[in-house]
Write a protein that binds this DNA or RNA. Structure first.
Lengths: 203, 203
DNA sequence: ATCTTTGTTAACTGAATGGTTAAACTATTT
DNA sequence: AAATAGTTTAACCATTCAGTTAACAAAGAT
């Protein structure tokens, strides 16, 4: 049998499912819309993935697998602290411009179903803060940065990088900028955010 | 007629609708669940609010009306820039602890339906950045703070304050903290965040 | 060639859901 | 107390939606 055919179909389904789930979330998504986007019969979705829930989980896993390496840039990379903050900030914005719905999708679905994160934490490649913690305490001891709890610093880095994408419509309205202007603001944040952070913590 | 009775029913419905919509969003909410929570017959929801969409809009408006004054603390308050940042950060966290689902609700529903923000912007009490912009440029001119675009500063302030509530399950998993620890972290941010910001921008 | 397995579709099913209706009930007016 | 107006409910309706079925098509296996 031509397993290229079936493989293609499966990929088509996954791509369509990603697009729809990431934009509309679990509740807002219709199986029919995924089928239409993949240009196949709705029954095929069930043939390949059995249920909406399982298809969703496949999409969620794949989304998280894309996000995890990004987080590891800040948490487990070998480079120097400041260098690392600069690198992460710069990389992350480029990454999200490629996958605009991804971070919000992951966050929302974790909100909808908090037990999910427990399932995730068990996975082998799940990013942890441990190594970063050591790096921060060394930098504090050496007097390179002001004292700060690692968790707070990490939350600050994540906030400054992720939030502008999640709250785009709200922030556009509040800052009174159009799409083009706002995109320019985001581009500028590639360097803006790391300076902001480093200015704040450096001795 | 006893209009206290009907007024109470309407308030009961609104309260129930707020609770459900803010937790589950438009798509995840069932009219039956609101009716059950309000302890009334489902038909009454339609008697008072005609449709799910209109009930939703009532809830959304009311949510935004609660949020707007918070934003005006940072955008239109008369106080000194540093003082204002301290005040906002402190107030905001207390506010969100009282209304935990509110900011995410507003942001998500604006994402779901971006035209909404255009409707909002027309409203008289919609917060604008104009006054804050003047204040920031004066502070820069006087050499009190380093040069920074007002929009970037505003986005930074919002990010650091709002994101930790929106991404709670994700950040809990990544920082490996339980509910109690995370709440303590959030409490500490009441002062932590304002120092972080002021450290970064002060000359 | 024909039998079996895999892939695909149209049509269907049953449950859930937003919304309606008509009647019952309650309060107010006359 | 009878009529009127407003409130509440149970039962119902139409539609949407996830999932199933049965028949068919394509490709290998024998």
């Amino acid at each position: 049998m031509d397993n290229l055919k079936s493989e293609n179909t499966e990929i088509e389904i996954l791509n369509a499912a990603k697009a729809v789930f990431q934009q509309k979330g679990m509740d807002g998504t219709r199986m029919q819309e995924i089928a239409d986007k993949a240009k196949i019969n709705k029954a095929l979705l069930h043939y390949y993935f059995r249920s909406k829930q399982l298809l969703f989980e496949a999409v969620f896993s794949s989304a998280f697998s894309l996000l995890a390496p990004q987080l590891n840039t800040i948490l487990n990379d070998e480079s120097d602290l400041f260098e690392k903050i600069i690198k992460f900030t710069n990389n992350y914005i480029s990454f999200v411009i490629e996958h605009p719905y991804l971070p919000n999708f992951v966050i929302q679905e974790l909100n909808r179903n908090p037990e999910f994160s427990n399932k995730l934490r068990v996975k082998e490649n799940f990013p942890t803060i441990d190594k970063f913690k050591i790096q921060v305490s060394i930098a504090i001891e050496k007097g390179i940065i002001k004292p700060i709890e690692t968790e707070q610093l990490f939350i600050n880095i994540m906030s400054l990088n992720v939030f502008p994408f999640i709250a785009e419509p709200l922030l556009m309205a509040l800052t009174n900028t159009d799409k083009e202007n706002y995109n320019q603001l985001l581009q500028n944040r590639k360097t803006e955010v790391s300076s902001f952070i480093i200015n704040s913590i450096k001795m």
